[in-house]
Every structure is written in C-alpha cells, then in structure tokens.
Design a protein around this nucleic acid. Structure first.
Lengths: 95, 95
DNA sequence: TAAAGTAGTTTATAATATAAACCAAAATAT
DNA sequence: ATATTTTGGTTTATATTATAAACTACTTTA
C-alpha cells in the first residue's frame, strides 16, 4: 500500500471541519460555522480565508439586520478536493 | 454531527503513515519506514521521536552488520490512539 | 588513504495554527 | 445622552510544526 499525499489545505482540523460542514449544508454563515466547529473567531477567519484563497469556498459579505454577515459556500473545486482527500486518506486508515 | 478532537500527534501526514505502517507490520526498521513513507531521514528521525515521546511506539537501537540499526514497534497505547483517531476522523468524513 | 556510502541526529528555517488584541458599528443599560 | 456590552468579524503576534540542510560517526570501496 502506497501512502498518498494529503492536501495540506484540507489536512487541518479546522479547515477540514469547515469543508465537511459545507459539503453537507452547501451554504453557511460565519457564526454558524463558528458554533459548529467551536473555533475562535480569529482562527476561523484565517482558515476561511485560506480555503477561499485555495478556491475551495466562495465567501460572500453583506449586511443583515444592520450587522455584517459572512456567508460561505463550497465550490466544485472544494468538493473535488475533499473527495480526493478522503480517498487518499484511506491509504492511511485501511486494512 | 459533532466534530471530535483529532489527536495532534497523529494528525500529521508522516506520523500517521508511520503508525499506519507499524499497525500492519508490528515492527519495522528505520530505513524500511523511510522507504515506505518517502520521508527524508531528518524528518523521520524527528517524527519517530515524537511518537516515542508520546508513548505510541517503542524504539530499539542496536548494531547490525557493523551499522547502527533503529527498530520501531507500536505500543498498545499507539494502537489505541490510532483507533480513536480513525473513529474521530469519521465525524469529518461521514455523511 | 581518500572518497563515497550507511544510518542516522541536530539545528535552522519556513510554514501553520492559534489566541490575543484590535476595529467598527449596534444594542442596551444608566 | 453617553458609557458599556455585544455582534461580527480582521489583523497581528506568538507558539507549535514540518521540513530540509548540515552535521556526526562510522564503514566500505576505489
């Protein structure tokens, strides 16, 4: 069995959680992601930016009820990267 | 679905590969692990030490045919940690 | 006996993760 | 009305990690 490369963008607990979440819900607000992942806002902000930079998510900023609102949505590149990551990870977990 | 904590000792590509390997072969020499993982010797040396420090592997040093020989063996704590890691990882990969 | 190879370790550096500090505005309490 | 707290973040500083480069110590081969 060969050990496959693990995409360093996804091989991070918080970024993996964010992508995992966005895979299931398609779209989510910053605060929702923060709650689900138990991350600090600062850390989440940084990691969301890296996922955006990588083209794995799309980030939309607007105002909702007077407050800023950041919404994230997974891209097809993000879905692909996640699927490949899971596949490659099998080489480390499998029998 | 809750995102479980991922043991930081195991959530590292190289260390995970080493443990994965040792789960399957029980005991392996440094050079064998190096070949299987395609790691540099320096990096492998450091990561093996961290796994030893964590009590996940046992490291034995001796001389074989005039050359130093480092042999690694997984401990029961290592097996447990790996199993828990895989289990927790499911919360990120699952449907 | 000089050069190249084996089997690593140590150290320096680059990349990452994380929390702390900060910012701007809105809501609330005094 | 104005001080305080809360919301929803971002930026920056720091600690941790991963990695490669340099080094050690010895052996084999030319």
């Amino acid at each position: 069995m060969e050990f496959k490369e693990l995409d360093p963008i996804l091989h991070s607990q918080l970024r993996l959680a964010v992508i995992s979440l966005l895979i299931s819900v398609k779209e989510a607000e910053f605060t929702f992601i923060r709650e689900k992942t138990n991350a600090t806002a600062g850390n989440l902000s940084v990691q969301i930016n890296k996922l955006k930079e990588a083209g794995y998510i799309e980030v939309m900023k607007q105002f909702k009820d007077n407050y800023p609102q950041t919404t994230c949505k997974i891209t097809s590149a993000g879905i692909n990267a996640f699927e490949q990551y899971v596949k490659n990870l099998q080489s480390y977990l499998g029998k």
